[in-house]
Amino acid sequence: MTLTRRSVMVMGAGAVVAFGLPMRASAAGEDKIAEFTGGADMAEGGITLSAPEIAENGNTVPIEVSAPGAEAILVLAMGNPTPGVAEFRFGPLAASQTASTRIRLAGTQDVVAIAKMKDGSFARASSNVKVTIGGCGG
């Protein structure tokens, strides 16, 4: 069976996927954030998250995260069946705390990136990505 958007969507029980209607943010997402930050406050700024406003296709959405001086960046898809996407840890030979990748989004939702800085503080950025289904190509 080919891995198509349609087959993923059929799985997403209760998920509303029409254009523009937001998905419920999962409580699991907030839990993951709390786990990562230990409940600490997160600054707005100091981290950038680039994601398209409208995803060409939810199966492959290019994103980029950047947080100068960060030790680690956690990326979450708040409306996916499981919110975890990736956690980037930057070592001593990372030239910049920047990374790009391609992710799967099950529907319109917020993608959240949280940076843990070397000084122990946290920063947060989020981006709303519209994911559509429909049209002849699917």
Partner: peptide, 18 residues
């Protein structure tokens, strides 16, 4: 340089740039 923990939300044919 970099160490990435990956979840199922990373797309098929995982791609990274850093």
């Amino acid at each position: 340089v970099v160490d990435v923990a990956m979840e199922p939300a990373i797309s098929t044919n995982p791609y990274f740039e850093f």
